[in-house]
């Protein structure tokens, strides 16, 4: 009012001043002096204070009973499938053959339907080029949300969870990891010398392939504690998992998101990876595009 409008600091600068973000900066004193003599800017600062008060005064919103019931039911269902997964883990995978039904039953109900259908179709055409076109839709969401550093979706089994039985080496890891997270057509790639059987479609039957030494890490809880050991915190969701070998030794390739979206972190761990023991064999940052 008293001074020309052009002298006003911007709204952002006033917000920063209000939040104490300008403390110690050269501009702080100037803006403070301006606000002290400018009614409109002082009003805006007061408005910020009022806004903060109103936000703090918003009432609590208890969870509605129907939502609470729904979540209780989902957790009960999860507890049941968790229990059956434990029951099944012993007899499974002698020669790497797990009945599809029991492998599927570890998925929560709402994932199971879709992936069972996809897996069924995929098995019919296993080995054929183009299998991934059928599953790419599912995997895309898993990859995207994982890249966003999410750690919580119920479809976390939609991450690329493969048991390729490939033998990775330090020379081939980067390409292999890019294939896991980026290339929709990994199943159609020329198999590595070691994988004599037809490549399995991604996610079709992850419990049935891969070295048996890695069986323990197929448990979501065990895998989660391994990942937590690597990252130092719980809840990071891998972009891709491959039960494979590294330099000829059984190893799990765990691909994690990085703060830099242009790269991913490739962790190679042995069968012992768990809380307190990463059993780390190799670690590498891999650019998403090679």
């Amino acid at each position: 009012m008293n001074e020309p409008a052009a002298d006003h600091p911007g709204i952002d600068a006033l917000c920063d001043l209000d939040a104490g973000l300008l403390a110690g900066t050269p501009g702080e004193a100037d803006i403070q002096a301006h606000v002290a003599g400018c009614a409109s800017c002082a009003d805006f600062i007061a408005l910020l204070a009022t806004t903060r008060e109103q936000l703090a005064a918003l009432p609590a919103v208890p969870m509605p009973p129907d939502v609470a019931e729904r979540i209780d039911a989902a957790l009960a269902s999860e507890a049941t499938s968790d229990q059956s997964a434990n029951d099944e883990s012993a007899p499974a995978t002698v020669a790497g053959v797990t009945p599809l039904g029991s492998a599927r039953s570890r998925r929560p109900r709402w994932v199971r339907g879709a992936s069972a259908v996809a897996a069924g179709i995929a098995l019919l055409v296993a080995g054929a080029v183009g299998v991934d076109a059928l599953t790419a839709g599912n995997e895309k969401s898993g990859t995207v949300s994982g890249a966003a550093e999410g750690n919580s979706a119920p479809n976390d089994r939609a991450q690329r969870d493969t048991g390729s039985a490939r033998n990775y080496t330090s020379a081939t890891l980067a390409d292999g990891v890019r294939a896991l997270v980026g290339d929709r057509n990994i199943a159609a790639r020329p198999p590595q010398p070691k994988s004599a059987s037809p490549p399995l479609p991604l996610g079709a039957q992850p419990d049935a392939v891969g070295p048996p030494d890695l069986r323990r890490l197929r448990s979501p809880a065990q895998l989660a504690s391994c990942v937590a050991e690597l990252t130092g915190r719980a809840g990071v969701r891998p972009l891709a998992i491959d039960y494979a070998t590294y330099d000829g030794e059984p190893a799990v390739i765990i691909v994690l998101p990085d703060a830099d979206p242009a790269v991913v972190q490739a962790w190679v761990v042995g069968p012992g990876c768990s809380t307190g023991n990463p059993d780390l064999r190799h670690r590498e940052v891999v650019p998403r595009t090679g």
Partner: peptide, 12 residues
């Protein structure tokens, strides 16, 4: 909550 249910074993 489902995710936390599963990840709790790895909570350090």
């Amino acid at each position: 909550f489902i995710s936390a249910f599963r990840a709790a074993a790895g909570f350090r």
